[in-house]
């Protein structure tokens, strides 16, 4: 009896020590949580989540101060990824923060633009070029579609244009698995 307990205890101590050593020796320095969350967020920087940018929202999620369903551009897919990462329950997109829209870019009607620079100041990713009293234009590749430039424009010359699929961006579809519909021939 005593021997058995002794053997088991020694075994436990040895294994525990080995595990402890391994934990110290092979410690993996993971990405801090905020970085991981930020990597999932779409970087639209639109502020629809009620935080001033994606990073602050990521920090709020990491601190547990924000829900994971406040990011409309990330959409359902993004919420699922966040739920996976954080081990939280999936939630549908919160309606008060907006709805999921297809990706769009802002376009300035150059004829109407008066060169007020207000949109340039509003753009979170500096995707608008122009100068005071000069016509402004949007660098489409760098526009995240955040719509932050729409409200400040005094002449409402900015519109959002949905990006359509092109030959270059077209994707092959997932092959339909025809296993499930039970075609019972008997």
């Amino acid at each position: 009896m005593f021997e058995a307990i002794l053997v088991m205890s020694v075994g436990a101590i040895v294994l525990g020590a080995a595990l402890g050593y391994a934990a110290v020796k092979f410690r993996v320095e993971g990405d801090p949580l905020v970085e991981k969350i930020d990597a999932i967020l779409p970087q639209t920087q639109c502020g629809q989540c009620s935080f001033p940018g994606c990073k602050p929202y990521a920090q709020a999620i990491a601190r547990g101060e924000a829900e994971i369903n406040q990011c409309p551009p990330g959409g359902e897919d993004g919420i699922r990824k966040l739920a996976d990462l954080l081990g939280r329950e999936f939630k549908p997109l919160s309606a008060e923060h907006g709805i999921e829209k297809p990706k769009a870019v802002a376009v300035i009607d150059e004829q109407t633009c008066i060169g007020c620079t207000l949109c340039i100041q509003a753009c979170p990713v500096d995707a608008i070029v122009g100068a005071a009293k000069q016509m402004h234009t949007i660098i489409a590749e760098q526009c995240t579609g955040c719509e932050l430039c729409l409200p400040p424009c005094p002449v409402d010359c900015i519109t959002m244009e949905t990006l359509h699929e092109t030959v270059e961006t077209w994707k092959w579809k997932y092959p339909v698995v025809t296993l499930h519909p039970a075609a019972n021939l008997q």
């Binding site: 970087q43 940018g53 990713v125 500096d126 995707a127 760098q142 995240t144």
Partner: peptide, 14 residues
């Protein structure tokens, strides 16, 4: 890569 670029640009702007 677009998101990364947007992040960089946003951070630089800040």
């Amino acid at each position: 890569s677009l998101a990364d670029e947007a992040r960089d640009r946003f951070e630089f702007r800040q």
